[in-house]
């Protein structure tokens, strides 16, 4: 398979006051060329740490990738020296963040920030970089790119800034774009526009996208495949249509039932009972068992492995023990 990104057995831990917090606790997944994969889960389940691990930006010295590999086109980023990572970040793997209001440098013009990245990675002169920057701003929908290049970020709205962030991320034609809740801070109409833009660009440049979100509406809009994370582990990987039609893991089911339905009769919104286990707690069984309505004896005694079903869907739950192929 021509996977752009292969993550296997990735473990990213934090050490705080001699306690170990397993922010990412052994996850495996792949992203194909041009594919958009969503990573969903409740707050604190390790989504951002997964993405920062890929970027090699886990906040040191407390946090560290302790095990596993992250292969980008077959090259392991975990083993890569920091010096070489400078050429990967922003070029091979680019990232956009949740907070467009604060993610741009307030004292540098949009032009300085865009051309800085372009000159750094593409090794071109200022003039070529400026042309490229203007072109990118045009692509992300600015009507007067040359004027915008001279503007400071505080003059732009949140949606505009996120467009600038997207232009910046896409300017060196990355193989993988990581978007960590790119639309959470935007209002609904702007959200839709930004998502549309990301969809178009990924098609146009055949960029793979790892989309991190806890908004399942965004997932159904953009993603082809969905990875569901819970407490640092992956509990389900499914194609997006299958996931919404027939969620396998009880946790996924809970997530889907907690989206308010727009059409149809008003039913009571269900939320998943209880809370995510406090980071650092170690349970003898399934981490979701204490909150699971379908839990049985085995769930609290044994840790479930990943079951791969005949149709290729993966789920970490004893309910599917009978259907395993592997």
């Amino acid at each position: 398979m021509n996977a752009v990104l292969e993550v296997s057995n990735l473990k990213t831990y934090f050490k705080k006051n001699k306690k170990t917090i397993r922010a990412v606790d052994g996850i495996d997944f792949e992203i194909g060329k041009g594919e958009t994969v969503a990573l969903v889960g409740e707050s604190g389940c390790g989504k951002s740490m997964t993405s920062l691990s890929i970027m090699g930006l886990v906040p040191a010295p407390a946090g560290k990738v302790v095990d596993g590999s992250i292969k980008l086109n077959g090259v392991d980023l975990v083993q890569m020296p920091e010096k070489k990572m400078y050429d990967i970040r922003g070029k091979e793997v680019a990232m956009i963040f949740q907070e467009p209001m604060t993610s741009l440098n307030p004292v540098l013009t949009i032009g300085d920030q865009l051309t800085g990245v372009i000159m750094h990675h593409l090794k071109v002169n200022k003039k070529t970089a400026t042309e490229k920057a203007a072109e990118m701003l045009g692509i992300v929908g600015f009507s007067d790119p040359l004027k915008t290049l001279k503007d400071y970020p505080h003059r732009l709205s949140g949606g505009m800034r996120q467009r600038v962030m997207i232009a910046m991320a896409m300017s060196c034609n990355p193989k993988l774009l990581i978007a960590d809740e790119p639309t959470t801070a935007l209002d609904v109409t702007i959200q839709a526009q930004v998502l549309e833009l990301m969809k178009d660009l990924s098609k146009k440049f055949s960029t793979s996208i790892l989309l991190i979100t806890h908004d399942l509406g965004v997932v159904s809009e953009l993603a082809e495949r969905v990875i569901v994370m819970y407490a640092g582990q992956i509990v389900e990987i499914s194609d997006v249509d299958d996931l919404f039609e027939e969620p396998l893991h009880p946790y996924t089911e809970g997530l889907i039932h907690s989206i308010p339905a727009i059409e149809g009769e008003i039913t009571r919104l269900q939320s998943i009972k209880g809370n995510v286990p406090a980071p650092g707690t170690v349970l003898p069984g399934c981490k979701f068992a204490p909150r699971c309505s379908k839990a049985f004896a085995r769930c609290t005694e044994e840790v479930p492995g990943m079951y791969v079903r005949e149709d290729g869907r993966c789920v970490r739950c004893f309910l599917y023990d009978g259907e395993v192929v592997e």
């Binding site: 990967i88 680019a94 963040f97 440098n105 540098l108 990245v117 990675h121």
Partner: peptide
């Protein structure tokens, strides 16, 4: 600690560039 510093790092700038070009003036 600011987000734009994280952006600068995510763009592959070296520590020195991050501190002097993106940080110092702020």
């Amino acid at each position: 600690r600011q987000d734009y510093i994280r952006t600068a790092k995510a763009n592959g700038f070296r520590q020195k560039t991050v501190i002097f070009k993106h940080g110092l003036r702020n």
